[in-house]
Design a protein around this nucleic acid. Structure first.
Length: 278
DNA sequence: AGCTCAACCTGGCTGC
DNA sequence: TGCAGCCAGGTTGAGC
C-alpha cells in the first residue's frame, strides 16, 4: 500500500496527536512481522515521551527519550489512532498506548516492521536500515539544481533498466512501484531503457516528474484522508488518478495508444509505448 | 560492485 | 460452490 506519499500523510495525520505524549503501554498481538517485534518493547517504551516523528524514505522514526522507534508499513500496513475501547480488527498486529489514545498497526501481510534503536547503537542516520537509503526527493538535497545532476551521476554506467534502478531507491527514496511507472511516464522515459543511458536533460526532467508525482499524491492523500483519529475509514488506497499504472490495454490519456504491461525484476511496469522513448 | 532472484505472508480475484 | 493458481503498494539477503 504505502509509498512515500502514504507514509508522509500518515506521519502528518498522527503527529499532532502523538508528539509530546508519553507511552503508557504496548500490546503485541502478533509480533511476527518482517523482523520479530522486540518482546520487551513495552518495558522499553513505557514512560518515554515522543519528541518528534520523522520520515526517512518509507520509514517512520519516532524520536523517544532514549532512542528511536522505527516503524515501516511494508506492503499492507496502516497506522491509525483509536480509542482504547475501539474493537480490535483482524490483522491488528501491535498497539502503542498513549493514555486515552492508542496507535494501532494493521498489517495483513506482515511485511511491516516495528523495531527499537536505542541511542547506544549510534545515530539513527547510521542505522543499517537507514544508512543506505537514497536522497529524500522532497528535501533541499533534491532541489532543482542538484536533483537532475544527482540522478544523472548515480545512473552513470548502470546496465539495469531505469525502472528497476529507480525503484531500488539507492538514488532517490520513496518511489514505489506505482509512482515509479507514473514518474517515468511523466518524464517520457521508456522503462526498459538502461539507466546508464539517461542524459542530463532527461535526468532533470525525471527529477521534476518524481517530485511532482509525489507532491500531488501527498496533496491528494492529505485531502481525502484527514481522519486519522477515528476507527472508521480505510486509509489504504488513496491514489491519484493514474496515467499508466494498472491501465494495461486502456488508451493512453495523452495519445490514445494502448498502455502496455510488462514485468521487470518480478514487478509489473506499465507504460505508453508511444509517449515513452528509450 | 552490480545484478537477479527467492523469500517473508495473507487475501482477493480469475478461471476451470 | 470449490479450489487451484496467480497477483498485489516493499525490502532484504544469498548467490553469481
Amino acid at each position: 500500500m504505502p509509498e512515500l506519499p502514504e507514509v508522509e500523510v500518515t506521519k502528518q495525520g498522527i503527529e499532532p496527536y502523538i508528539q509530546g505524549k508519553t507511552v503508557t503501554g504496548v500490546n503485541i498481538y502478533d509480533g511476527r512481522l518482517r523482523w520479530p517485534v522486540p518482546k520487551n518493547l513495552e518495558k522499553i517504551l513505557s514512560g518515554q515521551k515522543v519528541a518528534q516523528i520523522k520520515r526517512r524514505g518509507k520509514y517512520l522514526l519516532f524520536r523517544m527519550d532514549d532512542g528511536h522507534l522505527i516503524i515501516h508499513l511494508g506492503m499492507t500496513g496502516v497506522l491509525r489512532l483509536h480509542k482504547p475501547s475501539d474493537e480490535l480488527k483482524k490483522h491488528d498486529r501491535i498497539e502503542i498506548l498513549f493514555g486515552q489514545r492508542v496507535l494501532r498497526l494493521h498489517d495483513p501481510r506482515k511485511f511491516g516492521a516495528v523495531l527499537w534503536a536505542g541511542d547506544e547503537s549510534g545515530e539513527i542516520e547510521k542505522h543499517p536500515l537507514i544508512a543506505k537509503l537514497g536522497v529524500e526527493p522532497l528535501s533541499d538535497d533534491f532541489n532543482d539544481e542538484k536533483a537532475g545532476l544527482h540522478l544523472y551521476q548515480h545512473a552513470k554506467g548502470r546496465q539495469v533498466s531505469i525502472k528497476q534502478w529507480l525503484l531500488a531507491g539507492q538514488a532517490v527514496v520513496g518511489v514505489g512501484n506505482i509512482y515509479c511507472s507514473e514518474s517515468l511516464f511523466s518524464a517520457g522515459i521508456h522503462p526498459q531503457m538502461a539507466a546508464g543511458k539517461l542524459s542530463l536533460p532527461r535526468a532533470e526532467k525525471l527529477a521534476v516528474a518524481i517530485k511532482d508525482t509525489l507532491q500531488r499524491a501527498i496533496k491528494a492523500g492529505g485531502s481525502s484522508l484527514k481522519d486519522f483519529v477515528n476507527s472508521e475509514g480505510d486509509p489504504g488506497h488513496f491514489m491519484l488518478q493514474t496515467k499508466v499504472y494498472d491501465r494495461a490495454g486502456l488508451p493512453c490519456r495523452v495519445c490514445q495508444t494502448n498502455i502496455k504491461q510488462i514485468v521487470q525484476g518480478q514487478r509489473s511496469t506499465y507504460f505508453c509505448p508511444k509517449c515513452q522513448k528509450r
